[in-house]
């Protein structure tokens, strides 16, 4: 599903040049659950952003579903993104002015899904995440765990093939964290590919494979399953 080879990304400021990705290559097959780990600044987040088509690489190849997307323009990237990829962030990133229902609805709006179908799909996913009773609340009125469940609901509402999770439990206590990890595992079992960046060894054990990174390169790959 994903094949990156020789991927490079360099951040330049006036005086300093930071190599975030240094000729990185790996592959992720459809249905896999992969964790990416490594110390701060090793390039995990950069990698995730490139995989999520939020950022473009300086060099190398990125094949997504058999298509070379490394040189896609913003328009094409946004299009590919909204059809195939869901995001879960450490800090939830819900829109404060929208209710739970409206937050989850957002990707469907940009996909052009019609109102009644939208309603039905959002309700289904809220049900699945067990936050249906909170549908008319605003994010500030929810606990961290609930907020992250909303974020996961939003990430999956358009049935993406790939979910990118950036430290999804980083802001949660352990019981809420486990709940979220269970959600992701369930999704993976239903066929969704998941790539997760994490610092937590505990969380990484939910995945099939761990890629460890250092200074923009992979150092080891552990296959857990």
């Amino acid at each position: 599903m994903i094949k990156i080879s020789d991927l490079q990304k360099v951040y330049r400021t006036e005086e300093v040049e930071t190599v975030a990705l240094n000729h990185l290559s790996f592959e992720v097959k459809e249905g896999e659950f992969v964790s990416v780990m490594g110390p701060s600044g090793c390039g995990k987040s950069t990698l995730l952003n490139i995989l999520g088509l939020l950022d473009d690489p300086d060099g190398g190849s990125f094949i997504f579903n058999g298509t070379e997307v490394a040189h896609f323009n913003e328009r094409k990237r946004a299009d590919l993104r909204k059809r195939n990829i869901g995001f879960v962030f450490q800090s939830f990133n819900l829109i404060d002015e929208l209710t739970v229902f409206e937050n989850v609805e957002l990707p469907l709006i940009y996909l052009g899904v019609k109102g009644p179908e939208r309603k039905q799909r959002v309700e289904t996913v809220l049900d699945k995440m067990q936050i249906m009773h909170r549908r008319n609340h605003y994010p500030q009125q929810l606990s961290g765990g609930q907020q992250q469940r909303v974020a996961v609901a939003r990430a999956v509402v358009n049935n993406p093939k790939l979910i990118l999770a950036d430290e999804p439990t980083g802001n949660l206590d352990s019981s809420n964290g486990n709940e979220v990890m269970q959600l992701l595992t369930d999704l993976n079992e239903q066929g969704t590919t998941i790539i997760m960046v994490t610092h937590s060894e505990h969380d990484s054990r939910y995945s099939h494979r761990i890629i460890r990174m250092l200074d923009g390169q992979t150092v080891t790959e552990n296959i857990l399953v």
Partner: peptide, 16 residues
């Protein structure tokens, strides 16, 4: 800014 970021990751085009 955050709202715009979320909208973009949710698939919003710049024109939208």
């Amino acid at each position: 800014a955050k709202e715009i970021g979320i909208r973009k990751t949710s698939g919003a085009q710049r024109s939208e």
